[in-house]
Design a protein around this nucleic acid. Structure first.
Lengths: 158, 158
DNA sequence: GGTGAAAAGTACATGAA
DNA sequence: TTCATGTACTTTTCACC
């Protein structure tokens, strides 16, 4: 994971479909070198996959919300079973299992506030392990597209 | 946005780098047809981009957390300025502006619990608009890779 | 809008430095 | 490791359906 690998990772996070030639040119190496590095990164699992980003509004999903969910009893079985239930629901974008006040945070995107309400009533609140939940409408969501190894801090050298 | 478009979107979310030929074969259409559809989806903004997914542990970022932040006064200027400050920080994965008890939820990934503490002290708590925040360690995070238009509900036909 | 074949460009393997 | 080159494949264009 040298500087060249980092640069490749940076570029492919922005545009995963640029040709190997363009990528190589941008980095100042030969295409064959670049190809080899990209394959190695893929095989090592540094690059976990290539995904198209889809516009939620284009799918008619104009309303996003975060659900804070508490379940009981707080056992591995209950946590796992709720996670397995909720993650593949089509309304759900992502699921966090967290420490602290809540047990789960669930990011959902639905067509409308009505659909959010219906989702909560029909698919969430019926689950018997849930002892409490509240939902927060998301006004804005911005992502940091490009992640990098964090700059090394003075006190923690590698 | 017919069934073919939906299928393309579904496939490209899973693997954005499969060849147009393979995609066309999987969908049972000619490669040229498929290519045309994909380009149209890209131009309409349905496909917003293609991104490599990077393993956070591979970047040495083993600890994830969610920060719940309250800022005051609750004005557009304060919201926007905090969002512009926090989003590009390298530790930050994504930022939600939400309604309800908190104003922001910030998803971060750092190398260690020490680094999380340092981040909170050095880069968050110094901001004067923050009137309160708490952080929750994330035990697990699962994403729904493939999003689709939601199945139409009986009561809301298009 | 969809298809098929030709032309341009790209990826990939191989061998050399 | 990195690089240069040839071959096979893929993308892309275009005339036609």
């Amino acid at each position: 994971m040298d500087e060249l690998d980092s640069a490749i990772v940076r570029h492919l996070q922005r545009d995963a479909r640029q040709t190997n030639r363009d990528l190589a040119r941008a980095l100042g190496v030969a295409p064959s070198t670049c190809l080899e590095r990209v394959r190695a990164l893929r095989e090592r699992g540094v690059i976990a996959g290539y995904h198209a980003e889809i516009s939620l509004p284009a799918l008619g999903r104009h309303v996003q919300a975060l659900l804070h969910v508490q379940v009981r009893p707080l056992s591995r079985e209950v946590i796992e079973s709720f996670k397995r239930y909720v993650t593949p629901l089509p309304e759900v974008l992502s699921v966090f299992v967290v420490a602290g006040g809540d047990d789960f945070l669930v990011h959902v995107a639905v067509p409308s506030v009505d659909a959010l309400h219906a989702f909560l009533m029909d698919k969430v609140s019926k689950r018997r392990e849930i002892v409490g939940f509240r939902s927060s409408i998301i006004y804005q969501h911005s992502r940091n597209q490009v992640l990098a190894p964090l700059p090394t801090r003075p006190e923690s050298s590698p």
